[in-house]
């Protein structure tokens, strides 16, 4: 496509960080502080001081953190389309609609998948620094030594040895969540963090309930939904979901592109 220029996409990314640098600085610093506080509070729970805090505990906190990143950061896409004045400026920037969409996707992906994991890691380091230097002296406890040091690679949820369908399902889910939140930002603006997650929950409920309904309609016995396998170890239900997730992801971007193209101010 001759409408795509890497240099214009980079300029659009520069524009995004220039116009919204206060927002990005606030979320980076805010996330850092929040993670430190939450981790410290979690460590202060007596049971953790007694039994220790391991990598798997970090992963649980990180999972919740990652969901929050998707909702509150990825979901704030196209911030320039929120007000009339900024919309005029953004839509009339000499760049194509596809470049503007790609720039938004790259910006959100880079913040969510590159910057924010580091922020989490630094937040944990900060909590460890505060915990070890201050709390040990204040509380005179040596139990902080039972807190494991966070290995950055443990934040990567996909591990070797997992079934390919698990990895595909996880990657598809992340892609779909990202794309749907970006699409949602064009419809719901600043209220995207409320409406789009609600729609997603509704979508999951409808998908699961309709599968069960179809299954009970077509089978005489109460067959477990996981017993129908299309590949070895891959239930039909999961396989269909994987396809839907990737398709949904592509469709979300497709609709997003057309929504941007037809945007009027």
């Amino acid at each position: 496509m001759n409408n795509i220029s890497i240099s214009r996409i980079l300029k659009l990314i520069k524009f995004e960080f220039l116009m919204h640098r206060k927002y990005y600085l606030t979320i980076l610093i805010g996330a850092l502080v929040l993670v430190s506080v939450v981790i410290l509070i979690a460590w202060m729970q007596t049971r953790h001081l007694l039994t220790g805090w391991q990598q798997k505990h970090y992963q649980v906190v990180y999972f919740v953190y990652f969901l929050a990143v998707i909702i509150f950061i990825v979901g704030q896409g196209f911030k320039d389309l929120v007000t009339k004045a900024s919309s005029e400026r953004y839509l009339l920037l000499p760049a194509s609609h596809i470049e503007k969409l790609i720039a938004q996707i790259l910006t959100k992906f880079s913040v969510a998948l590159i910057a924010m994991p580091f922020v989490f890691w630094f937040g944990v380091l900060l909590a460890r620094l505060i915990g070890f230097s201050l709390m040990n002296n204040i509380l005179s406890t040596k139990n902080f030594e039972k807190i494991e040091y966070l290995r950055f690679e443990s934040l990567w949820i996909l591990t070797e040895g997992e079934h390919w369908s698990f990895n595909a399902f996880f990657i598809g889910s992340v892609f779909f969540l990202f794309s749907f939140m970006i699409l949602g930002s064009q419809y719901f603006g600043k209220w995207n963090f409320v409406y789009t997650p609600l729609i997603k929950i509704l979508f999951v409920l409808i998908t699961v309930l309709s599968c069960r309904a179809l299954l009970s309609f077509y089978t005489k016995n109460n067959t477990n939904i996981n017993e129908l396998e299309v590949f070895d170890g891959v239930p039909l239900f999961v396989f269909v979901l994987i396809i839907l997730l990737f398709l949904g992801s592509f469709l979300s971007y497709f609709i997003s592109y057309h929504k941007l193209k037809e945007r009027e101010v």
């Binding site: 409408n3 220039l18 116009m19 640098r21 206060k22 007000t83 004045a85 900024s86 005029e88 400026r89 839509l91 009339l92 920037l93 000499p94 760049a95 194509s96 609609h97 193209k261």
Partner: peptide, 23 residues
């Protein structure tokens, strides 16, 4: 269509300007 050649050759200054104040 807001094509690039058109946008590069056109500038619109609206009645109400809004420039990010921190810049």
């Amino acid at each position: 269509d807001r094509s690039i050649p058109f946008l590069n050759q056109m500038i619109f200054v609206p009645e109400k300007v809004s420039v990010p104040e921190f810049l």
